Computed example of a mutant assay.
Amino acid sequence: MEIDEIDRKILRALRRDGRLSNTRLAELVGLSTTPCWNRVRALEEAGMIEGYTALLSQKALGYPDTVIIEVTLDRHDDDIFEKFGQALAELPEVIEAYLLTGDYDYLIKVAVAGTAGYEEFLRRKLYKLPGLKHSRSTFVLRCLKHSVSVEP
């Protein structure tokens, strides 16, 4: 699907505030409500808009710290990648997880409550995952940019 500048305006507005009413969105992008609604539906159907969500505050929920963990597995076969990936996805502290190329197999972003919370996560959860060989961790000092999608 080709998108034009009006579609980009719609996407930018919804990226900033996914709770905009169709009426307000139409005002912001210079359309009447029906064409605006039709464009939003078309963008959803084309997969440009994958969904809508609420952004929750880690700090307010008691997990003020973020740790980036690089993980190496003990072997590289389909079975261990599948088992490790499934087990990792079930951990509520894991915010993001990526399968990588290079020196490490996975990059994981984890929300924790300080060093004690991180130690508990390591000992009770991460170190018990199948296939883990080595991990290297870095505490985040400050987030300089946080975005859930690219700017259209």
Rank of each mutant, 00 (worst) to 15 (best):
S135P: 02
E44G: 06
V112A: 03
F121G: 01
P92G: 01
L43C: 07
P92V: 01
D78L: 10
G114K: 00
Y63T: 11
T101M: 14
K128D: 09
R15P: 05
E50C: 04
L31E: 14
Y118C: 01
A87T: 12
A111C: 02
S32L: 11
P64C: 06
R16Y: 13
E90L: 10
V71T: 00
K83A: 15
R39K: 10
N22T: 13
V140E: 04
D17N: 14
I80S: 01
L55N: 07
S137I: 01
W37K: 09
S21V: 03
T33M: 09
Y118I: 00
P35M: 12
Q58C: 04
L28Q: 13
L73P: 07
Y52V: 06
F81V: 12
A116D: 15
L43G: 05
T53P: 04
P64E: 03
G62D: 07
I69R: 00
L122W: 02
C36S: 15
K128T: 06
Y104W: 15
D65K: 03
C143I: 07
I10L: 09
R123T: 11
T138E: 07
K125W: 01
G18W: 05
E119H: 11
L126H: 00
R24V: 12
F121L: 02
Y52W: 02
R123F: 13
S57P: 00
S57I: 01
A46C: 07
T115C: 05
D4W: 03
E120K: 11
I95R: 11
S32D: 14
L122A: 05
G18I: 05
Y104P: 03
Y106S: 06
E50F: 04
L14D: 15
A26L: 12
G85P: 08
V94M: 03
D77V: 15
R123P: 02
K83N: 14
V71L: 03
L14H: 08
K83E: 15
P64S: 02
G47C: 05
L28C: 12
M48L: 10
R124V: 09
Y98E: 13
G62I: 09
D103A: 08
G30A: 12
D77K: 05
R75S: 08
L14F: 12
Y98V: 12
Y104Q: 09
E2F: 10
I10G: 14
S135G: 02
L129W: 02
N38H: 08
